[in-house]
Write a protein that binds this DNA or RNA. Structure first.
Length: 616
RNA sequence: GUCCCCGUAGCUCAACCGGAUAGAGCAACAGGUUUCUAACCUGUAGGUUACUGGUUCGAAUCCAGUCGGGGACACCA
């Protein structure tokens, strides 16, 4: 009977997993399907390939991958393609090849977008039909609206995405933000790529640390019911324990024993554990709600305890492991890395044991095409061991991609943050400070607004700053935590993008009714300045940017893209007055342009989970 | 000790994962608003890509070594 509480918990969790599976299977799709061929940028690429194939009489198979590049500033051309990969195929110099293609384009009238071209240093540089490109790009953006950028890269695939994964009984640190935000954004990127994503918050709710915690908690006079901030109190208990354990190694042993009792199902300990777990989940929920982060599944490590026992049996049975001198189970070395433990000497499970069980369960239940883990780089070895063992045990199919999407540490004072060592910046503190800083500025700038309006804006700007700071850096590099830098509200920051979006919205309001612009057909669109064309050209690259960010699992590519878009728009804004454009059709065209910019900016910010305020 | 990641302008970062004269923001300097939001725009200045060698048509990017910083390594997660 003593296991009954835990059994009930296991059953309820199993049911929630089953519900998620049903929901996933029933999920129609995450959005409409948009094929690559609908995008002008793809059509441009096709024309380039067509030209090359015609000139040299090649079949598509013979054509190497030719990427369309954006030429450096001193080159006038709109796009460029390097001919170097063709040189070995055609046994000719890149420059000659480029010249041949240029001459073909010059004499041909079969192209819609390619207007002219030039050959420079082995590059095939193309000049687009400005007007037609402008018209088609803008039309496409407005036609697809919030679906502009959707592409079929991972059409119909199932992606199992683990992220956030905070440890219970501790406040979320600024380090958890990286996993939480990266995971959320990657999920959204996959959905734009046509995938069905299952988001799993893999709670750290089991392990020897709870032996430690339950030990000090029992000893203390802390009353969780009456505490105002139970999580903070529990963290303090935990920190005090690790400090004492440093002096007194005996304490560690007691913690391990306590954990053993927990794993054996001691009903009193289970009850305490459940209470602490629920309190933690409640406190996490507040943060997730604030950040607009949503999970399909919240399953902790604890759920996999029974399955982890089976893993231990299976591995032993397969003869992949041996017992060490204290009875611990040692997995023999796999591939490139050394031996590692799967069971402790006292018969309890490890993080890795439960993770192996978890990956097997995910494969079995969800049959995913990919299983992705958004977890810090410092756990790289753990995932090597996990994936290695899961493969040899056939817990994952050979055609299932498993990948550790690692990210750099958030360091404080040049060192790793650590709860135990008291070097911790909590996420809630950071978000609060961010909102405070934003509030101070908005109170100065917009005395005309009500307190409620300013509070809402401060929240959106503050949260946006924190989220964006994390996203705009290359994922794998470490970042040093710095208040001023993280909460900077100028230059390359979320507020620049938010400001630009609000500026466009305000501009549109100022122009009154713009329905006439929406009703324009593509061939009525016209342009006058080079900045208008540069904007449209940049808009055309948005779908590729999404695919690129997705393939490399690096949202910062999208950040850079949006910053360029905003910068181009602000240049346009500074040099052209839409309202005072005398020519009616040119004015209407400009309205279409800014609508398209706004739409793309909004689509991108939505993926990055950065809110767009009404005013600023 | 072994393994992994990183080193780019004074500072914080990019460089589409081998391509053309390495780009932005901040800070500095010089300008711009009686006109659609100046949290903005325009311009100037700032570099031996830590160092040394190698690979090739071509290197910040790949390889080797050196220096410097960070991280992971059996009963934490």
């Amino acid at each position: 009977m003593c296991m009954s509480d835990f059994q009930t918990y296991l059953q309820k969790t199993a049911q929630s997993i089953e519900d998620a599976r049903e929901e996933l299977n029933g999920r129609e799709r995450t959005g409409p399907s948009v094929s690559w061929s609908e995008y002008p940028i793809t059509a441009i690429q096709t024309e380039v390939r067509q030209a090359i194939m015609s000139v040299f009489d090649l079949t598509p198979d013979q054509l190497p991958d030719l990427e369309i590049e954006i030429p450096p500033e001193h080159i006038q051309a709109d796009f460029a393609v390097a001919m170097f990969p063709l040189a070995s195929v055609l046994r000719d110099s890149p420059q000659n090849i480029a010249e041949n293609v240029v001459s073909y384009v010059y004499h041909s009238n079969e192209f819609q977008y390619l207007a002219s071209a030039e050959a420079i240093q082995g590059y095939f540089n193309i000049y687009l039909n400005t007007l037609r490109t402008y018209q088609h790009v803008l039309r496409q953006v407005l036609m697809l609206g919030e679906n502009y950028g959707v592409h079929p890269q991972f059409e119909e695939q199932r992606i199992f995405l683990e992220y956030s994964a905070p440890n219970i009984a501790k406040p979320m640190s600024i380090g958890h933000l990286r996993s939480t935000i990266l995971g959320e954004v990657l999920g959204r990127l996959y959905e734009r790529g046509g995938a069905r994503v299952i988001r799993d918050n893999h709670l750290g709710d089991w392990g020897t640390q709870f032996g430690s915690l339950l030990y000090v908690y029992q000893e203390s006079d802390l009353d969780l019911e009456k505490s105002e901030d139970p999580i903070e109190e529990l963290k303090n208990l935990y920190v005090s324990f690790t400090e004492r354990a440093k002096e007194d190694p005996e304490l560690k042993e007691r913690a391990r024993k306590m954990f053993k009792h927990l794993e054996e199902g001691d009903s009193e300990l289970i009850a305490m554990w459940q209470k602490i777990r629920q309190l933690s989940i409640d406190s996490f929920e507040r943060v997730y709600e604030d950040l607009d982060v949503n999970f399909d599944l919240v399953v902790g490590e604890s759920y996999y305890l029974p399955q982890a026992r089976h893993v231990i049996e299976d591995v032993e049975e397969k003869g992949l492991a041996h017992r060490g001198e204290n009875g611990e189970l040692v997995v023999d070395s796999l591939e490139d890395f050394d031996t590692f433990l799967l069971e402790k000497g006292n018969g309890t499970t490890l993080y890795l044991t439960r993770d192996v069980a978890a990956i097997a369960d995910r494969e079995r239940v969800f049959d995913p095409d990919k299983i992705l883990y958004v977890v810090g780089n410092e756990q790289a070895l753990h995932f090597q061991q996990l994936f290695g063992l899961a493969r040899v045990m056939d817990y994952v199919k050979s055609d299932t991609d498993v990948e550790h999407i690692g990210f750099g540490l958030v360091r404080t004072g040049g060192k790793k943050m650590s709860t135990r060592k008291g070097r911790l910046v909590t996420l809630e503190d950071v978000l609060e400070e961010a909102v405070n800083r934003a509030r101070r500025i908005i109170e100065e700038k917009r005395v005309d607004l009500s307190d409620e309006e300013r509070e809402e804006i401060a929240r959106q700007v503050g949260y946006g700053a924190v989220i964006y700071h994390d996203l705009r850096h290359v994922r794998t590099k470490d970042v040093d935590f710095n208040w001023d830098q993280m909460l900077s509200l100028e230059g390359e920051s979320a507020v620049y993008l938010q400001y630009t979006a609000v500026r466009i919205r305000s501009l549109l309001e100022n122009l009154g009714n713009t329905d006439y612009a929406l009703n324009m057909s593509a061939d009525q669109l016209t342009l006058e300045t080079s900045i208008e064309f540069r904007l449209a050209k940049h808009l055309s690259l948005y779908p590729w940017t999404l695919a690129n960010a997705l393939n490399r699992h690096t949202p910062h590519i999208l950040c850079t893209y949006l910053e360029t878009l905003a910068s181009l728009f602000n240049t346009f804004y500074g040099s052209v007055s839409v309202r005072n454009t005398p020519d009616r059709s040119l004015r209407a065209s400009r309205v279409v342009l800014i609508l398209a910019v706004f739409q793309t900016l909004e689509n991108g910010l939505d993926i990055l989970n950065v809110p767009v305020p009404d005013k600023l």
